[in-house]
């Protein structure tokens, strides 16, 4: 019993960082993301008896997180309040170890990518985040968002196309190429 609890706790603790950042990228708001991840983890605790085997746990967890994020996004909060919160609690940027200038450049780049992501509709943003940030396969994404793999594939394509045509992101193409090399 204790072994199971420890294993679950360790897995959740190890998953927290990636899960939280996934939620932030989907919700676009750290407060919503924190609550969504909290709800998702509590649900995981509550329904731990229904947890799938090891290889299916991550998709299962991300499905719960996506549901929690959607639930937060659909709450009856006026859009202007959400936008204000987004500004007030703009995504906190981790401090770079390469110095203030590098930190500022990195922060600007991250902010540009995050802004481009938020410009996408959530139906396109979610599969993109799950694919290229969370590292889920198209099949696992299909399970997480309850869509067919073909739908996921087309949405990913459309998300990439829109993101690539984002003028702010295009302006940083050279910087992005440099950053990812």
């Amino acid at each position: 019993m204790n072994g199971e609890r420890d294993e679950l706790n360790d897995w959740l603790a190890a998953s927290y960082t990636k899960a939280y950042r996934t939620a932030v990228l989907i919700c676009g708001n750290p407060d919503d993301a924190r609550e969504a991840v909290q709800d998702a983890f509590l649900r995981t605790w509550r329904f731990r008896a229904s947890l799938p085997p090891d290889e299916g746990r991550d998709p299962w967890l991300y499905r719960v997180i996506v549901n929690a994020c959607y639930s937060k996004l659909r709450q009856e909060i006026p859009r202007r309040d959400r936008e204000r919160d987004r500004v007030d609690s703009a995504m906190p940027i981790a401090v770079s170890a390469e110095g203030p200038a590098a930190h500022a450049e990195h922060a600007l780049l991250a902010d540009t990518v995050a802004g481009a992501l938020q410009a996408l509709p959530e139906s396109l943003r979610t599969p993109l985040v799950l694919r290229y940030w969370s590292g889920l396969s198209e099949r696992e994404i299909a399970m997480a968002i309850r869509r067919r793999p073909g739908t996921v594939k087309s949405r990913l394509h459309e998300a990439r196309r829109r993101l690539a045509s984002d003028p702010a992101l295009a302006g940083f193409a050279e910087e992005l190429l440099g950053a990812v090399q």
Partner: peptide, 8 residues
């Protein structure tokens, strides 16, 4: 880039 920059 966007994900890693988010503070935990």
């Amino acid at each position: 880039i966007a994900g890693e920059a988010i503070e935990i």
